[in-house]
């Protein structure tokens, strides 16, 4: 085979590669759109009136996850199943965001941390690499860290809205999360960088809890009233 023939063949391979990337980008764009819609929907909980209809918002968000499922389904068909990590960078960001959104919904509903398997199910993908398009563990953990900063914000806003019990529950949750992350030996990569932000979320929530306890407001909360003063 002559040199020019070799390069023609290689060029063909590279062009095919670019076509795949183009296809993936299209689907990822649609996914980002859906993710933004879900986020907008859930942002409503930060407003005073939003606290009343959290279940309704979660319900609606879960409906949107149906769209996500079909979009991820079509993403799967765009590239060979055994080359997940070759194109991983293209959907990494949006997948982390979707993990966060799913985790947020689950937290609002049940105040627990969504498991990796449960996220995979909400998104209609696999938890294990062996079985096809899956959720990478680092992406899952990144999404969970985003949840932590969202919850620290929620703690502040729930006080403003007069819900004094929620910050205490969030505090317990985040502390447990913090202990969980302490178990991990993270490399000096993007996940580690995001983990380094967790302590500020913990600190923020501790401050909120402190403010409440010094004013005796948490006693009202534990009594179950959660009323205004």
């Amino acid at each position: 085979m002559s040199v020019s023939e070799m390069f023609i063949a290689l060029q063909g391979v590279l062009t095919a590669d670019q076509d795949i990337r183009e296809e993936i980008r299209k689907v990822v764009q649609a996914l980002e759109q859906t993710a933004r819609e879900i986020l907008t929907l859930l942002q409503g909980v930060h407003q005073g009136t939003g606290f009343q209809d959290i279940p309704k918002k979660c319900q609606k968000a879960r409906e949107h996850f149906g769209t996500v499922k079909t979009q991820l389904e079509s993403l799967k068909t765009k590239f060979p199943a055994d080359q997940y990590y070759r194109f991983h960078e293209h959907w990494r960001f949006v997948l982390q965001r979707l993990v966060f959104l799913a985790a947020f919904v689950v937290y609002l509903e049940s105040e627990t941390l969504v498991t990796r398997e449960a996220v995979a199910e909400i998104l209609g993908i696999e938890a294990d690499r062996e079985r096809g398009f899956h959720l990478d563990i680092e992406d899952y953990l990144s999404g969970v860290l985003t949840l932590a900063s969202e919850l620290s914000r929620l703690a502040v806003n729930s006080v403003t809205a007069g819900d004094y019990a929620r910050p205490l529950r969030i505090s317990t949750f985040i502390n447990e999360l913090d202990s969980g992350f302490r178990l991990l030996n993270l490399k000096n990569d993007s996940l580690r960088k995001r983990y380094d932000g967790l302590k500020y979320d913990v600190k923020k929530i501790e401050e909120v809890v402190y403010d409440l306890s010094i004013r005796g407001l948490n006693k009202d909360a534990t009594a179950g009233a959660g009323g205004e003063k």
Binding site: T115, I137, L141, E176, S179, L183, N185, L186
Partner: peptide, 14 residues
């Protein structure tokens, strides 16, 4: 707790 158990398995995996 369930959370800690799952993080222990994450530790192993990572």
């Amino acid at each position: 707790s369930a959370l800690m158990t799952s993080f222990k398995s994450f530790q192993l995996e990572l």
